[in-house]
Nucleic acid binder design. Structure first.
Lengths: 336, 336
DNA sequence: TCATAAAAATGAAACGTTTTATTTTTGAAA
DNA sequence: TTTCAAAAATAAAACGTTTCATTTTTATGA
């Protein structure tokens, strides 16, 4: 039972054909129909499977894509991975995953690790603020697609959502519900997602001629802890906001935890708008009003960008795909 | 900038040493210290990295593990993947992920796909009821570790939780809170996790001399939909249960959705015990009483089993690792 | 200084493919 | 039948390593 795998050579001997011919057939080339029959038989009999190592050694293609993600267990990233894996699989690619545990310092070594695996391309979800590794990416002769945020001066295809627009829309919505004292809990100022969301917020406020109270704008990590602390601080203000906008999923969780601890309920005591994970938001009572990112579209765009580059069809210019998120109205915003 | 990667041959020429010597040094062999210096220099100058394809072709080891999981976006599986990836990375292994989208019929082809990638070993989370592919696994000369459930007659290392014990414990707890009319929503009868949980339930009930009402025992998929439907049916019974035990995470979500729709609240109208995801359970108001699985321990056990087999240290007998889950008391069970 | 064992270096084969230039076979037109 | 282009098959080189049987160099002790 433990006999070694058969090779082209074995097939060649079985069929009395040459290795070259067998290889050609395996790769879809044409042979005489008589030979086709015997080849099929041999392949079945000997249970032949190509040795991808040998193939890759020759072709310099591994048909494998690396994905570098801040975490393998958070909602946004795993959804991306799920969809991307599906698409790539259809094109015969496998996916090597590498998490860097939200620690940007790990990115260079993990990147090298993936590169040493001879991946044909890479998907990077930067999701952090330290961009020292950007030159690393730039120097590799390999298609790379960036997801969720841009990195300055890095010339590669990028897929993001229109953070400015959705933030503008959320703010606009809150203002129309007659909230003027709006707290917004943001990520770090070094991330484009975060600064764009801040800009959208400010612009909407300005358009409505509402002055922005700096104390209502909290930057920090995209983390549950930050959401939690910021919420407590916002609600401890003498003139506290009547609505809070959490600009990512972890922050949303932090807001909820803080409210729970303060024994405040939404939307009675404070209105909230969260981010991501429609399923969970509908399970809360009352349900959450949230921003939903088009995860499937993002994933598809990422996969398509990459596949195009792999086919050498990519434009010379790096492509920027900007997708629209949507506001899903729940019950967590009170009309003032 | 786009010059091809350097090879052992290039290093050999640069250093005037033979390829064999260079290879030896790269792999940790000893050379004269004078040569060591020039080798280091050459490696740096030429930016040498081993070609893992060529290496694997010779060694027949890819230092890559495949993981076959029902989904890449559900709580249990992604947590496993996250932890396993961490551990394997430390040992120089990369992880190729493959989701089969909860469709067991996809397992054979995905399995073949991974096998063709020349993975050194495989981790399989069966999570489904159709075991036709079991012989596939059995026939491969490759270490395989099964997670979360056993497959009859399949001789490979398996890591599971003690479903019987935890179910017994939960039931016992509910009984001690003076619930006797307990509904339990289970997975399919073809899964060991499900039948074990059922046995634990029945045993505890019997020990307390409480007769089991068959109408209270609902088997079905491990899915939100099943949880939802089963809850509605349970609560529509003339003599409805006072407590419901949801035996996996998706079912738990279904229970919550059903309660929300029926405008019933826990624990006032009905007590509930859920499964998995401590973080979320604490965010609900009131918080959920749940079974928490030792995800880290499970992942570690899986990785260790695999690494042992890869080192050829595994026992001849397949190993069964059974870990204990724990009951985390929240506020969703009322004392009757 | 020499003999010798240990350490280091070497050269070549092998891993299983793809690819290319070349040869052989086929079959249709003349 | 002969001719000749097209189709099919071939043989050999190459991809970049590891490994192993040899050879060369080094260091040690007498």
């Amino acid at each position: 039972m433990t006999m070694k795998n058969s090779t082209l050579k074995d097939i060649a001997e079985y069929t009395h054909l040459s290795i070259g011919t067998v290889s050609k057939y395996i790769n879809g080339g044409s042979v005489k129909s008589a030979n086709q029959e015997i080849l099929d038989e041999a392949i079945r009999q000997l249970d032949y499977h190509v040795n991808t190592m040998a193939r890759s050694l020759k072709t310099k293609k591994s048909k494998t894509i690396g994905i570098l993600t801040p975490a393998l267990d958070d909602y946004f990233c795993t959804n991306l991975v799920e969809h991307i894996e599906r698409t790539l699989y259809r094109y015969g690619y496998s996916l090597i995953v590498c998490g860097y545990h939200n620690d940007p310092d790990l990115i260079p070594s993990k990147f090298q690790f993936l590169a040493s695996r001879m991946v044909d391309g890479m998907i990077v979800i930067p999701g952090s603020s330290n961009d020292d590794y950007a030159k690393l990416l730039a120097n590799k002769q390999m298609p790379i697609v960036l997801v969720d945020r841009t990195i300055d001066h890095l010339k590669c295809d990028t897929v993001i959502i229109d953070s400015f627009a959705i933030s503008h829309q959320v703010t606009d919505y809150l203002l129309k519900q007659r909230h003027e004292k709006i707290g917004i809990i943001l990520g770090p100022d070094t991330l484009s997602t975060s600064t764009d969301r801040k800009r959208g917020f400010i612009q909407a406020m300005t358009e409505h001629q509402v002055t922005v109270n700096p104390a209502y704008v909290r930057t920090g990590d995209y983390s549950l802890e930050h959401g939690y602390e910021a919420t407590k601080q916002l609600l401890a203000l003498p003139d506290r906001p009547t609505a809070i906008f959490a600009t990512n999923f972890d922050i949303t969780l932090g807001v909820i935890r803080a409210l729970k601890e303060l024994k405040l309920s939404f939307p009675e005591d404070v209105s909230i708008v969260g981010f991501d994970n429609l399923l969970f938001s509908t399970l809360f009572s009352p349900s959450l009003t949230i921003v939903e990112q088009p995860l499937k579209e993002i994933s598809d765009a990422v996969a398509q960008c990459l596949l195009q580059r792999l086919r050498g069809q990519g434009a010379t210019q790096p492509k920027l795909v900007k997708l629209q998120a949507s506001l899903v109205i729940g019950e967590s915003v009170k009309k003032n």
